[in-house]
């Protein structure tokens, strides 16, 4: 898939990249990070104009994200019909209010596997749009300019950057899952001690 898309990006240029990152923003599982890093290398080779490519890519991906947010926003009623006022839902809303900004920001570029659930959750919990947009935009700027910039810096050796960043995202996700699990087990132990005391 990524090889096919790379061929098409060198054939059709920046407009295709904008379309791909827009669809990626909607939540389609496309290898967008690979393309962004490669686009940086292509910009260095003079195949893509880096400034317009970067600017319109940011606009495209934020537009895609905003549509995903609105899907969550308007699906709220359906979600509430199912979970309304259940302790689990209230807890999820509370957690999201606490961790929302960090999860919105980091899921844009580092842990992209959870980007869509986080965006939908933002809409469903009616996370304030302006705040959401600020963190989303900041994360996407890091993604496009940071990752694309690394592609530009490393030129034809961009695959090394892609391999490192792809695996680093997986490692970060693993660390977060592990910490959440250990924290939960720790809380149970504390409760048990309090009950037995």
């Amino acid at each position: 898939m990524s090889e096919y898309l790379l061929t098409q990006v060198i054939n059709y240029g920046a407009p295709l990249l904008w379309l791909i990152v827009f669809i990626g923003g909607l939540g389609a599982p496309l290898p967008c990070t690979v393309l962004v890093i490669a686009a940086g290398a292509f910009a260095r080779q003079g195949i893509l104009p880096w400034h317009t490519t970067a600017f319109i890519s940011i606009v495209s991906v934020v537009s895609g994200d905003a549509i995903s947010y609105s899907l969550g926003y308007y699906a709220r009623e359906h979600v509430l019909e199912r979970f309304s006022q259940t302790p689990r839902w209230l807890k999820a809303e509370e957690i999201f209010r606490k961790w929302g900004p960090l999860s919105i920001f980091f899921s844009r570029f580092l842990i992209t596997a959870i980007a869509l659930p986080v965006t939908l959750m933002s809409g469903t919990t009616r996370y304030p749009f302006k705040k959401w947009l600020t963190y989303d935009l900041a994360g996407e700027i890091v993604w496009i300019l940071g990752y694309g910039g690394l592609g530009y810096l490393f030129g034809s050796q961009w695959e090394v950057v892609n391999e490192f960043l792809g695996n680093f995202g997986g490692l970060t996700l693993g660390i977060i899952i592990f910490i959440v699990g250990v924290k939960q087990v720790w809380n149970w132990k504390l409760k048990r001690r309090q009950l037995s005391a």
């Binding site: 695996n167 693993g174 899952i177 959440v180």
Partner: peptide, 20 residues
Amino acid sequence: LTILGCLFILFFGLRVFHAY
């Protein structure tokens, strides 16, 4: 989830090390 997290850390940690 905790076991999955450990497996992720092991798998991606090794890959990050090689990539680094």
